[in-house]
């Protein structure tokens, strides 16, 4: 199996591949990925809380 080298960018559309990512580039990419993950998790929590508040306690009182 030939996997793409994660330290290289570009080169897929005929353009010459960019220089490999440095250790600093990889660290920045990792910190950005973590920030995106945290932001998404916070958004999920906000939308969950807003949904529960908008539904209100009456949502549990349903005819059987």
């Amino acid at each position: 199996m030939s996997g793409a080298d994660p330290t290289r960018r570009g080169g897929s559309d005929g353009a010459p591949p960019s220089p490999p990512l440095s250790r600093a580039d990889m660290r920045r990419r990792r910190s950005r990925s973590i920030a995106i993950a945290v932001s998404l998790a916070v958004m999920v929590l906000i939308f969950y809380a807003v949904t529960i508040v908008k539904l209100g306690p009456q949502v549990l009182v349903r005819p059987i």
């Binding site: 960019s18 920045r28 910190s31 950005r32």
Partner: peptide, 11 residues
């Protein structure tokens, strides 16, 4: 110029 060089604090 290639992108992807920004830190989280830059954003």
């Amino acid at each position: 110029a290639l992108g992807g060089a920004g830190e989280v604090r830059d954003y």
